[in-house]
């Protein structure tokens, strides 16, 4: 086993996903299959190989520090499930 049912539950919490018991069981089995397949990478020695993060060399893309048009508060809040005034509204965070 690469990953236990308990670990699946913990990873789901990290990912902020509520999962049912049935999903937990299914994910445990499917993630094990996938992780076993991925294990194939250990056949390769990669010591000293520089990890690659982008396909082409990208450098910081700076621009002039100039104010440009933005969409504004009203449009920003237009898609919010719940908003009041100029704020997003969420369930209470602390008791």
């Amino acid at each position: 086993m690469k990953i236990s049912s308990k670990e699946v539950e913990y990873v789901a919490h990290l990912a902020r996903l509520e999962i049912t018991e049935a999903e937990q069981e299914k994910f445990t089995s499917q993630l094990n299959d996938i992780l076993l397949y991925i294990d194939k990478l250990n056949e390769l020695t990669t010591e000293g190989v520089e990890p690659m993060s982008h396909a082409i060399s990208v450098t910081n893309a700076f621009r002039e520090d100039k104010v440009v048009d933005s969409i504004g508060t009203q449009q920003t809040l237009a898609n919010a499930p719940d908003a009041r005034g100029e704020l997003f509204r969420v369930p209470k965070v602390i008791d």
Partner: peptide, 24 residues
């Protein structure tokens, strides 16, 4: 779930770093 697991503490080197090296 796969991505969160691969990036989680203790597994980053074994999965994400390894994959980025093989990608090179």
């Amino acid at each position: 779930m796969i991505g969160t697991y691969a990036l989680s503490a203790g597994y980053y080197d074994a999965y994400y770093k390894k994959a980025s090296q093989v990608r090179a």
